[in-house]
Amino acid sequence: MQKFAQSDDFGSFLWSVQQAVHQRKGQDTPMLIMHNLARQKKTPVAQMMTRVKVSWADFNDALKYLEEAGLVKMEEDENGSMLCLTEEGRHWAQTINGEWGEADEAENASGEERE
């Protein structure tokens, strides 16, 4: 196991993927946070937590994961702790917006039809 962590070519990448895939199976909170941030860009942490509707432990875990992946960062301002996208997170958000924007529109349209 240790030999992967010490490799300097691509062993660390393979090791990290293996670990993360096993840990994150079935957990979609990080992508929910990315989805919300893709639309809002900057959101108070407390507000984000109420939006994604998960337990504090899951939320905290997801936030830590996204920070470690370099997609989101925390900033302090007069409104308290704010969650915002990093530069790479912004690139992801632009692409995610295209994908989920269409899905949201389809969902809204079907909701209106039902009403």
Partner: peptide, 24 residues
Amino acid sequence: QNLPQEEQDKFGKKMALLANAPMS
């Protein structure tokens, strides 16, 4: 050949996130 391990770890986490994400 010389990409730092930290960058590789970050990238691995991103890929694991994508692999499990409900997207096309």
